[in-house]
């Protein structure tokens, strides 16, 4: 009983730190998702914050998740009662998907680039209707067209036209 009593303030502190770490991990990962919503205007400041968070969150979440894991292990050993242990698991559970999400760009899940774009000559291009709109460029006599219906899906296509590397975007 004496050991348990003497470690009680330490346990309380460990719980507090664990909660703060968990909240911080969730904040740094979820804030950019909330700030950069599609169909809502963004501000330069909001984007700057989001960019910084996306940039640093992979390493920060990893360190924080490791610290949280150590605290959980320590608290687990020093906790009695199944409900305390269950609470530990509940607090730690969101840390894992958040640490994973920090390594993802959820905006890029929505858009699928075209890694190996292929081209057809005009007389083989039965896949485009006459009334379809194309983005067209010409460099040094080489003409290329990017149908908007495809561009509206891939959004970004890289190409070299007339020796000049270009990116077509929609």
């Amino acid at each position: 009983m004496t050991t348990s009593n003497s470690s009680f303030p330490g346990r309380k502190l460990a719980w507090l730190v664990l909660l703060v770490i968990t909240a911080a991990i969730l904040a740094i990962v979820l804030a950019p998702v909330w700030i950069i919503q599609p169909f809502s205007p963004q501000t330069q400041r909001g984007l700057e914050w989001s960019f910084a968070m996306k940039r640093w969150s992979p390493i920060l979440t990893l360190i924080a998740a490791a610290a949280a894991l150590m605290l959980v292990v320590w608290l687990w050993r020093n906790s009695r009662g199944w409900w305390r242990k269950a609470l530990l698991v509940i607090v730690f559970l969101p840390v894992l998907p958040a640490t994973w999400l920090a390594r993802q760009n959820h905006f890029e899940w929505m858009f699928n680039p075209l890694p190996n774009p292929a081209y057809a000559m005009v007389n083989e291009a039965g896949f485009v209707d006459d009334s379809d709109i194309v983005l067209a460029i010409e460099f040094k006599g080489e003409a290329a067209a990017y149908p908007v219906r495809q561009m509206a899906y891939h959004h970004v296509v890289e190409d070299v036209v007339g020796g000049t590397p270009i990116v077509a975007t929609y």
Partner: peptide, 21 residues
């Protein structure tokens, strides 16, 4: 760049190439 219907573009650039789906 131009933004044209395919019909207009291919009349002007019969030797051009088109991004495949």
């Amino acid at each position: 760049h131009d933004e044209l219907t395919f019909a207009t573009w291919k009349r002007e650039k019969p030797q051009g190439r088109v991004l495949k789906p």
